[in-house]
Design a protein around this nucleic acid. Structure first.
Lengths: 123, 123
DNA sequence: TATATATGTCGACAAATGTAGATGTAACGG
DNA sequence: CCGTTACATCTACATTTGTCGACATATATA
C-alpha cells in the first residue's frame, strides 16, 4: 500500500524477481543481471535495500536467500505512472495520453487496439 | 537537448518559470511558491542549481536575477514520459496507455476526445 | 584438513536532491 | 548617514541511490 521508492538499479533487480514465478535465489538473480556489470556486493546491497524498503521478502533456503516480491509489478508501475500524471499533467491522464501521442510512435495497429480497449471500457 | 535531471522541488520552480511568459524575477517566483513553506534561501538554492544544470538562464536586472527557461515544458515532459515508457513499458507507449487506462479515471468525454485525437493522427 | 568458493553483512564514499543558516552587500526609508 | 530590506552567495547537513571493498562464515573439494 505504502509508496515504495525504488531506484533505477534497484528496479532492474525487481524486474528479475518479478520475472520469476517462484522465490528466486541470489545466485539466479546474479546470473540474470550479468551484463549490467555490477559487482556481487552491489547486487547484494540492492537486494538488502529492497528488503528494507519492503519491496521484497527474503527467506533463507540453505545457504542462500530467496526473494519474493511484496509489491506487484502492476502495483509499482501504477504508482509510478500515477506519480507522473499527477506531477506533470495535473492529474489528468487524458492529458498524458495526448502528450504521449504527440511524441511517441504509434502504429495504426496500436491505435486500433487502443481504440478497442477504450470502446470496451466506455460504458 | 541534453537530459536535464530535475528534482521534484526544483520542478515546482520550473513550473513557475514556465508559467511566466517573460523572464521572471526571484521575488515573483518566491511569491508564486509561497505555500510550499520553503525558506527564501531554499528557493535560491533551487534556482542556482537549475541554472547550473542549464535548465534556466539568469540575467541580472537591477538587484535581482531574472530567469528564463532553457528547456521547454513540453520538452521536459516528453523526456520524463519517454523515460517511463522506456523503463517501465519496454518502450511501448501503447502498453503505457493501456496500463494507464486500467488504473486512471477517464470520463466518457475523455475517451471520446482521445479517440478523436487518435482518429486525427491515424493516417 | 587446508583451501578455494559462494554468500551474506558492514561500512564507505560519491553524486543528487531537499532544506536552510550565515554572510555580504547594495538600495531604500527616514 | 544609518538601520532595514531585499537579494545573492557560500557552506553545511541529511537522505537516497549507485557502487563497492573488507570481512566473516559456511560449504565444497583437492
Amino acid at each position: 500500500m505504502k509508496n515504495v521508492s525504488i531506484g533505477d538499479s534497484e528496479f532492474e533487480i525487481m524486474k528479475v524477481v518479478w520475472g520469476a514465478d517462484e522465490p528466486i535465489g541470489s545466485a539466479a538473480i546474479g546470473k540474470a543481471v550479468e551484463g549490467k556489470g555490477w559487482k556481487r556486493t552491489t547486487i547484494a546491497t540492492f537486494l538488502a535495500r529492497l528488503v528494507e524498503k519492503g519491496a521484497l521478502a527474503a527467506e533463507q533456503r540453505g545457504k542462500a536467500l530467496y526473494y519474493t516480491p511484496l509489491i506487484s509489478e502492476r502495483e509499482y508501475k501504477k504508482q509510478r505512472v500515477s506519480g507522473i500524471v499527477k506531477s506533470l499533467f495535473d492529474g489528468s491522464a487524458k492529458e498524458m495520453v495526448a502528450a504521449l501521442f504527440e511524441d511517441e510512435n504509434f502504429t495504426d495497429e496500436d491505435i486500433e487496439e487502443l481504440k478497442a480497449v477504450f470502446d470496451n471500457k466506455e460504458k
